[in-house]
């Protein structure tokens, strides 16, 4: 490395190493997004065309009934999934925080579904909720002859089976994040409150939970992000059906891109998904990065 050139090269090595990786990100993230956005403004169907066609695809998208089904499913799933995961996660975190000796074991049990693929989760719940042989059958055998549970094949209720399976998989994750938050609350503060005569319930409601606001914020964001991207679970559990009753934006996009060869329409739906994620993530990232 004696030569001048060598030293100059050595000084720029970090930049030389980062550049191709950054370039890959520019192309495969930003470039690809631009391509998709552009296609969403064209008449592309089976093959991409590049002539600007205005908002045609967005008009088609918003006048497609299936898209509206997908959106209302997303709203239902999102709201229930986030709320139920938060409630279960907070409850379990607080209960686990009571000096339980076998906490490690219990935590392992609560969290293992996170290690599973959503496809596996979907497969199992599909079997358990099977009308005829699943839980319905169990209840009937237990003496409740008239028990009916056909949500999986009932277009009005099938989306709730996705919620059931999704909450089963992800509520332990919410618990783990909350528990980490609880452990970071200062002990001294709680002791002081206890000395002042505050009961345990009041300590939780008035002191601990408000202090967990930032954690709550992250958990909501993470769960929302999971909800918007949910694809595997729907495909494995209901296949989007019956009909397209449990379609979500992610499965809608996939169906129109790869099964129906409606590139423009699929691109428009993907752009809508991206906008939704940006609306949630960017303010969060901004506040996170500023805090550090």
């Amino acid at each position: 490395m004696g030569s001048k050139l060598g030293r100059a090269l050595e000084r720029r090595l970090p930049l030389i190493v980062v550049s191709p990786l950054f370039a890959a990100s520019l192309v495969f993230v930003y470039g690809f997004i631009l391509w998709t956005v552009w296609i969403s403004f064209t008449k592309s169907r089976v093959l991409p065309t590049y002539d600007f066609a205005g908002l045609l695809q967005y008009e088609r998208l918003w006048s497609t009934p299936r898209w509206h089904v997908a959106l209302s499913n997303l709203v239902i799933f999102w709201a229930l999934f986030v709320v139920l995961c938060l409630v279960i996660g907070t409850l379990l975190a607080i209960l686990l925080d009571q000096r339980i000796r076998i906490e490690g074991v219990i935590r392992t049990i609560y969290l293992y579904p996170m290690a599973l693929s959503f496809v596996v989760t979907g497969t199992v719940w599909k079997w358990m909720l099977n009308p005829g042989l699943g839980l319905e059958h169990v209840m009937q055998q237990a003496g409740f002859e008239g028990f009916r549970f056909d949500w999986l094949v009932n277009p009005d209720f099938a989306i709730y089976t996705v919620v059931v399976a999704g909450v089963w998989q992800s509520s332990g994750y919410a618990m783990a994040l909350f528990l980490a938050g609880l452990r970071s609350v200062d002990d001294e503060l709680l002791k002081a409150a206890a000395i002042d005569g505050a009961g345990p319930l009041r300590i939780y409601l008035r002191i601990v939970l408000p202090m967990l606001r930032p954690v709550l914020m992250s958990v909501v964001i993470i769960l929302s992000h999971l909800a918007i991207k949910s694809f595997d679970l729907v495909v494995a559990l209901t296949g989007g059906g019956p009909g397209y009753a449990t379609d979500m934006p992610a499965t809608f996009m996939y169906a129109f891109a790869f099964q129906r060869s409606e590139l423009g329409l699929a691109a428009a739906s993907a752009v809508m998904m991206l906008m939704t994620v940006i609306a949630i993530i960017v303010p969060y990232l901004y506040s996170e990065l500023r805090r550090r």
Binding site: S25, F28, F32, I33, W35, T36, P249, L263, V277, L285
Partner: peptide, 21 residues
Amino acid sequence: MIFALMLFGAFIPFQVILLPM
């Protein structure tokens, strides 16, 4: 700046890159 720009890639819904990929 490079890091912030690259980080964004972790959050995008992958539907938005499926077609070009």
